[in-house]
């Protein structure tokens, strides 16, 4: 999977525009940082699974936007051969975390290879902004901001 494929697939999986995930003027290079997880040998990604996900994505990536989510649902999410890897891409973006592919992230069994990708990956986790908040431990708010209702990001 190339970086461009990773970004466009990530956009379909997360519901965020590719330009948000990888802005033209990219100060923190989060897309690159997360993408590197797919090539990290210690993550033990079965190459057949990664190849299949890439293949399937390339088959459906040209789907017109209104039908794209349905296509992703049918071809990727409902496909037990690749859905777990797709879920991990979602987790990368929402948490900055890579979960052991061989386990369910909810199971908490150890040992595992779950890990936070980097402090910047954590800080840029999408889940925080989605709820109108900031990553715990990194706020750019000013004193007292918490009195005011935040604006939630628009969902298309």
């Amino acid at each position: 999977m190339t970086l461009d494929e990773f970004v466009s697939l990530s956009s379909a999986l997360t519901g965020y525009p590719a330009s948000t995930l990888k802005p033209a003027r990219d100060t923190q290079m989060i897309a690159q940082t997360l993408y590197e997880q797919l090539n990290l040998p210690s993550n033990n990604i079965p190459s057949a699974q990664l190849d299949l996900l890439t293949l399937v994505w390339n088959q459906i990536s040209g789907t017109p936007p209104p039908q794209l989510e349905a296509a992703v649902k049918e071809k990727i999410i409902d496909n037990l051969a690749i859905t777990r890897l797709a879920q991990n891409i979602i987790y990368l973006w929402f948490f900055g975390i890579w979960y052991d592919l061989s386990k369910n992230p909810a199971s908490f069994t150890s040992p595992n290879i779950d890990h936070v990708v980097s402090p910047l990956a954590y800080k840029n986790g999408l889940v925080w902004g989605e709820m109108g908040a900031h990553p715990m431990g990194f706020s750019t708010g000013v004193f007292g901001y918490w009195e005011n209702v935040p604006q939630l990001p628009a969902i298309n």
Partner: peptide
């Protein structure tokens, strides 16, 4: 995933 996930999170 996608927009449904985002809506649920919000």
């Amino acid at each position: 995933f996608g927009s449904q996930l985002r809506k649920n999170i919000q």
